[in-house]
Design a protein around this nucleic acid. Structure first.
Lengths: 132, 132, 132
DNA sequence: GGCGTTCTAGAATATTCGTAG
DNA sequence: GCTACGAATATTCTAGAACGC
């Protein structure tokens, strides 16, 4: 049972939020929660083509193509939704409407500059729940 | 629990073996077992490009890219390997060596012209095993 | 019990990863793990012909033709998978698509520049397990 | 008995679908 | 409407078991 296993969800999420290559998942201002742009996420990571283009999924972070499955993973690892993120799409029209609403998720074991907490991000199975 | 659910393995396998579009999975002579060409299967269904071509997976039957995962599914649904298939590579050289060895698998609930048996193809979980 | 016996798996693997003749098995950047290109491995070492060519297996390192058997050996000797190797499919289009994903395996007793550790690579039998 | 190969299964995570709240 | 979760299947990685040498 390894949260540090690079092929498991926690490590992937950590890599994702800290990668400059992907803009759909970022830290919030305090570095205590995730800000997720669903539309951008679907294009960058789930291979959703913006109409008219083949979905050439280069690096497949996930096997799913449904954003809902990603949310299910977040919940399985204990993340909860906080509400909509702050100020997006209001003042700044950043290009061609590429940005959608920002979803805000939080887990006590997922914080910027606290890689050490990552080991506590456990898959919430029935067995793991009993342990906790 | 539906073996007839089109998104589950039994229905997909049935569709696959009966489709003229795919040559990697066929009925054996008696229609009581499957003949599987691993290399062709990987190219047709798992997106393994034959060198020089991007892996453009049109219809994604499965999410995996590993042939071993397909075998795991066969075993999980009760299929057993019978041995190598008959007569391949001997008499008929069918083109450019596209064919590899044929794997032969069998299940009592998977037979040609017996779609009615398909409902008995059950995912062997611990609960289902206890029932049997 | 000889890990150094040239006919046994550890010595073969050592020879393989250090041979300039085979490109399918290499050290990772730190020299602490193996990077394995499955498709190339099958062609170079298991006699899988790239279509149109007879499988003329010159140096038969292994008797098997199944990649899965090689993986079974790795596990029997204590290797664990680390996840997909770095940098593949992302930036570099490496020519003619000859390369597939790189599998990353690790054992504490298999490190570059540490031939002395090789003696600890033991076949995990019931007896050996009890010892550990 | 040890080792290599093959086939199958266990166990954990991942994905999907439905539904309680 | 919507968020979270249960439960079933799917995928992955590793191990068990049987057989031959």
């Amino acid at each position: 049972p390894g949260a540090l296993n690079p092929s498991h969800f926690p490590a992937k999420l950590w890599q994702l939020v800290n990668s400059p290559r992907f803009g759909s998942v970022r830290w919030d201002a305090r570095g205590e929660g995730l800000l997720i742009d669903q539309r951008l996420f679907e294009r960058e990571l789930l291979g959703a083509a913006p109409a008219g283009q083949g979905a050439a999924l280069t690096a497949a972070f996930f096997k799913t193509r449904n954003f809902a499955s990603f949310i299910r993973q977040l919940n399985l690892y204990g993340f909860r939704k906080l509400g909509l993120g702050p100020l997006q799409g209001l003042a700044g029209g950043d290009g061609a409407g590429l940005a959608g609403p920002l979803l805000h998720f939080h887990s006590p074991h997922f914080r910027r500059d606290r890689l050490d907490l990552l080991v506590h991000l456990q898959h919430l199975t029935r067995a793991n729940k009993a342990t906790l």
